[in-house]
Amino acid sequence: MNERTPLCIVVIGVSGTGKTTTARLLAERLDIPFAEADDLHPPANIAKMSAGVPLDDADRQPWLESIGRRLHAGDAAGTGCVVACSALKRRYRDTLRAACPGIFFLHLTAGHDVLEERIGNRTGHFMPKALIDSQLAALEPLEPDERGAALDVGPAPEEVAEAALELLAER
């Protein structure tokens, strides 16, 4: 890892884009810790999503603050962190950025059909296909003043991770 590589990276996008897989691969290749933001949801949020009910901003705020603390801790310790987190809206990313100003957002993108297929094929996850449309409606792509980049997830996960490493090296 060179000194230009951001140590705190948040892999964002709607459910089914491969955030967890990509974030794990990046963490391994950069030799920094990985965190799954879904593991930081309080039980009430998981129950709500499992019932097919989208979270509202009040549900998300404590969760985002917890993720921000995890990023801040990795930054402060110098170990860095790669986090898989939807962070669909600018204000959610602002909350994370307030906790860790130097973070880099890697926005994974995919078409609706790809998302439906991926979510339909996975097991053991609380996010149902029914919430894809609400996530896509809520999605606010990265703005020019946000440190980050978008990446299509059509290729195999290893190729997506390699492309992400190339994007990080460029910055």
Results as ranks from 00 to 15, higher is better:
D152K: 10
P155H: 11
H125M: 13
S134M: 09
E65Y: 01
T5H: 04
A76I: 06
R147Q: 11
G124Q: 13
A84W: 03
L139Q: 10
L168N: 02
M49F: 07
L55S: 08
T5C: 03
L131S: 15
E162S: 11
S15Y: 05
S50F: 06
E140I: 08
A73Y: 02
E158L: 10
P141Y: 06
A47E: 15
R97Y: 03
H72K: 09
A156N: 09
T20V: 04
L96E: 07
C100E: 10
P33R: 14
R93I: 00
E158A: 15
A110R: 05
G154I: 08
R97E: 05
P155M: 12
C100G: 06
D94K: 02
G80L: 05
R118N: 04
D94P: 02
Q135R: 11
L168C: 02
P33Y: 08
G74R: 05
G120C: 06
A27Y: 10
N2G: 13
T21Q: 02
G154K: 08
A87F: 13
E140D: 14
M1W: 14
I46L: 13
E159V: 10
G148S: 07
S66W: 04
R4P: 01
L167R: 01
E65V: 00
H125S: 09
I119S: 09
E28L: 12
V83T: 01
E117A: 14
L40A: 03
E28C: 09
A99D: 00
I32C: 08
